[in-house]
Simulated scan of single mutants.
Amino acid sequence: MDHTSFLERWFRRVALSIIIVFFMFPIFWIVLMSFQTNETILRSPPSMSFTPTLDNYMAIIAGRLDSNVASMGIDFVNNLMNSIILSVCSVAVALVLGVPAAYAFARHKFRGSEDIAFTLLSFRFAPPLLVLLPLTLYFQEIGLADTYLGLVWVYQLICLPLILWIVRGYFEDISPDIEYAYRIAGHSWFSTFRKIALPLAGPGIAAAGLLAFIFAWNNFIFALVLASADKQPVTVGALAFVTASGIQYGQIAAAIVLSIAPTLALALWAQRYLVEGLSLGAVKG
């Protein structure tokens, strides 16, 4: 029995190690590429033996795209700041609108509630190209084209359905008896929502906010069409690294490392809330 248990634990560790290596190796290779020159990256066969250099990061921060023909200007740092502004603001707006709505759908059943919730979720089903032309025309009419406000409004429409449906499930997992007892003590609905429901669903809200932030950060098509160069995020700004004279693989790798750093830092910070959120969703109140 002990021998079988040992083999089972050993097999699980080996399988887990293989899975981790399989999924993490591309990221590890990109990090290595960010410290290499184009000549080192393109050599055949590839090798992990090289002299590290910070030229790729220095070129990005300085706003310079080096090529074999000329040195072109880029503004990747501005693109990175645009991504942070758009993602943070859109998730904040989606949380302010989506969390109370999720609580209302979870606690108050009314006629057409499921239809309204499904309609909001359908925003995630529709391909971006379906609404891109109408949005462009409307934004030009009301003056929201090429503005942060317009982009944040579009981005929060991406985040809102995700937050609404995820947080709704966490509110439904909380026993309503706890809230009823607090209400009987003479507290208002808003006080019950703020002091009871929100803290209990906090890990779920954090998990939904993190997922929404990742979706907003990775959005490409809306910013490509609705924003000019000075307001475009990193997903669009990365196109500057592909030029007629060649592809700057080292600088692309450095840009990828810098672009995933904020989401990685946020995920590490919210890791505790993610674990608590999964535990909360696994047990009914």
Rank of each mutant, 00 (worst) to 15 (best):
A282E: 11
P134T: 09
K109F: 02
L144F: 06
L278H: 09
A117I: 00
A207N: 02
S245H: 14
V167M: 12
I247S: 12
M1E: 11
F50H: 01
F105R: 01
A206I: 08
Y155T: 08
I27R: 09
A59Q: 07
E141N: 09
G73V: 08
Q36R: 03
W217C: 00
L226C: 12
V154I: 14
P128A: 14
A126L: 15
D2F: 08
Y103K: 05
L137F: 12
E276H: 08
A229T: 13
G209V: 04
W165S: 03
G63F: 03
H108K: 10
A94Q: 04
L65G: 04
G237T: 00
D115L: 13
S188A: 05
G73S: 11
R183I: 12
D66G: 11
L121A: 06
N82I: 03
I174A: 01
F222T: 13
G73K: 08
Y182M: 03
S71D: 02
P199L: 06
C159K: 08
A101C: 14
V31C: 06
V236L: 09
Q271W: 07
I84A: 11
A145P: 08
S83E: 02
P161E: 00
V152E: 09
P46A: 04
G98Q: 14
G202V: 00
H3P: 12
V167S: 08
I256Y: 05
L135V: 15
P134I: 10
L268Q: 15
A208C: 13
Y155S: 10
V236G: 03
R272G: 13
L151W: 07
V225M: 11
A208I: 06
G285S: 05
N218M: 03
T53G: 05
S83A: 05
I196G: 05
Q248Y: 11
Q36I: 00
R194F: 09
A94R: 03
L280R: 00
A240P: 01
L198F: 04
Y249P: 06
A212C: 13
I163N: 09
